[in-house]
């Protein structure tokens, strides 16, 4: 089924001043659609984590958000280095973020598990050298 409408966002690399703009914009859209506040909250947390990952690890990327009658799908993709060991990366507290990122309060290794906790469906596709694609699905009803 085709989506009713879609939004695309650029996620710039290493720019923390705009990181979070895409998820913040999606949060506003969901509020306007009248989506239940707790679902809006989970969506914006999951999307923000994926967005910030693209900023920190993926040299930036893109977000594609598609709105369907009953769900929203979010795809965050980057052409960064990719993930060696997905299972390891999913573990709470595991992080490959460099110190300069950690000093800014990011890179605590909670991002992916936080997405998993908040998303209704979450698929992570990645291969070293081929970038990362994070698929998040949220059911609205």
């Amino acid at each position: 089924m085709n989506s009713l409408f879609r939004k695309e966002y650029e996620i710039p690399a290493n720019d923390f001043s705009v990181a979070g703009e895409a998820s913040s914009s999606v949060r506003k859209l969901l509020n306007q659609l009248g989506v239940d506040p707790p679902i809006v909250k989970r969506t914006s947390i999951a999307m923000y984590e994926a967005e910030i990952n693209a900023v920190i690890h993926g040299n930036g990327g893109k977000a594609l958000v598609q709105f369907f009658e009953d769900k929203v799908t979010i795809l965050i993709s980057d052409e960064g280095p990719g993930i060696e060991d997905i299972e390891l990366a999913m573990q709470e507290g595991y992080s490959t973020a460099p110190d300069r990122i950690r000093e800014m309060g990011f890179g605590a290794g909670m991002g992916l598990s936080n997405i998993k906790k908040n998303a209704d469906e979450f698929v992570l596709e990645s291969e070293p050298g081929k970038g990362t694609r994070v698929h998040i699905t949220m059911y609205l009803l």
């Binding site: 509020n31 709105f67 609205l140 009803l141």
Partner: peptide, 24 residues
């Protein structure tokens, strides 16, 4: 209580359609 004043429509499907138009 939450005052959803920014909501486009009380019916979510209608709100979706309106959002589609709004975006266009």
């Amino acid at each position: 209580e939450y005052k959803p004043i920014l909501k486009l429509d009380n019916d979510m499907l209608k709100a979706m359609k309106k959002m589609q138009q709004l975006e266009a």
